[in-house]
Amino acid sequence: MNKYKICVYAICKNEEQFVDRWMNVVTEADIVIVTDTGSTDSTVKKLLNRGAIVYKEKIQPWRFDVARNIAMNHIPEDVDICVSNDLDEVFEAGWRQKLEKAWNPNCTRARYLFTWSYHEDGSPNKQFPMEKIHSRKGFNWIHPVHEILAYNGTAKENTIWIPEIILNHYPDLSKPRSQYLSLLELSAKENPDDDRGVFWLGREYMYYKKYYASISTLKKYLNMPTATWAEERCAAMRFIARDYENIGSLHEARMWLYKAIAECHYVREPYLDMAQLGYLESDWPLVKLMTNEALKINTRTESYLLEISSWDYTLYDLAAISNYRLGLYEKSYKYAAKACEMSPENERLKNNLYLISLKVK
């Protein structure tokens, strides 16, 4: 017998291809409520046919926080646990039983594992905690984009961790993200003291190749008194380095990467970025040093800032190339073999391994 009344709620637009896969799992809940924000395909019809309750809402100007708050307001008052879940996200079956087993009446929120990316064989690669399961009262969504669930209840917040619950993300890569930049600019304007929003805006400028805007915004972030998370500060420094590299200032790029390493020496990403910069400059001792230091790090932080290239074949590939250039052929072969092992279908890596083998006595 179920102990709690659980509602899954979502927003959507033109996601007909995801409906059946999504509904197959979320129907473990007592109620599934979807707020459609303007679908022109068969999304609404398919959701209704599968038993979801659908509300149609027009949100202008568009903001993700407004859309999600409207969706939340459609949840009945007698619901105990609310589960915010997009249609391109799929819980592993049995999530409800795991949630009810861990939840108690004093809980306000639950954290669980979110799978962002996958290995070639389909197994999870990049995972980090997500926390969009919450009690019915005391929450609202804030920020126009990269919205977060903020607690405003009267009792002390009580968050539980349920690693057995896994939510897998299968994004629709065809959807444009053109609205993100303007919404991030709006978010930074509305919340000038929110360091995370300023960081995301600086990163988005980098994605849009607005390198000077990215540099100034990320430097602003680094000077904010609340910007204290070392891994995120390291990422900001790495992004500044990429900006400088893209405008041709390689000396500035190198300086910022040294700062990034000093800021957070226990993640691989700044070492990899420095190795790649050394590769561009044919600085093989630097590449060798940086790949060696990076490969000493064997523990992933599993934060959202983790970059998969730091944990795939890339470091071994660069180590093989740098050792080869320095005449250290046996070491080069060892690294090249490992790179091939990690990416066995990569023809360039296989060809490199063969060429290196010719130098090994």
Rank of each mutant, 00 (worst) to 15 (best):
R196C: 08
N168W: 04
S117W: 03
D172C: 07
I162C: 10
L328K: 13
M23Q: 01
R233N: 15
N2A: 14
L318S: 01
L289A: 11
E245L: 13
D78V: 08
V287L: 09
M255H: 12
F18A: 08
S310H: 08
C82L: 12
G94R: 06
A236P: 04
N191Q: 12
E92K: 07
V54P: 02
T299P: 02
R109G: 02
K13A: 11
A275F: 06
N125Y: 14
I6D: 00
E120T: 09
L295T: 15
I133H: 03
L328A: 11
I160F: 04
R109K: 15
V19D: 02
N69Y: 05
M274S: 08
M237T: 04
M130Q: 08
Y333L: 15
T37L: 12
S42D: 14
L250C: 09
V26S: 03
S135M: 05
V44P: 00
E307V: 06
V360H: 11
P61T: 08
I297K: 11
H251V: 15
I70E: 06
Y212L: 12
K3I: 05
I142V: 15
Y279N: 11
Y221Q: 02
T299L: 13
W256V: 03
F239Q: 06
T226A: 09
I160W: 07
D172N: 15
Y266Q: 12
G197I: 13
L306M: 13
T159C: 10
K175D: 03
Y55A: 10
I59G: 01
A275G: 08
L201W: 01
D317N: 15
D172W: 07
K58N: 13
K338L: 06
D36L: 06
L48H: 04
L257T: 04
H74E: 07
S322N: 01
P171A: 03
I247Q: 07
V26K: 00
A253N: 02
R325N: 14
F128T: 05
W161S: 11
A188I: 00
P144H: 11
K331A: 09
C82I: 10
P344H: 14
R254S: 04
A319W: 02
D88K: 04
E232W: 09
T217V: 06
A71V: 04
I308M: 12
G38F: 07
A319S: 14
S214E: 10
R136I: 11
K56A: 09
S249M: 13
C340Y: 07
D41C: 14
N106I: 13
L47D: 01
E347G: 07
H265V: 05
K259Q: 15
Y9T: 01
N125L: 14
C7W: 00
Y266G: 03
Y333T: 01
W22C: 06
V267R: 00
L250D: 06
W311G: 08
V267S: 05
Y221F: 13
L99K: 01
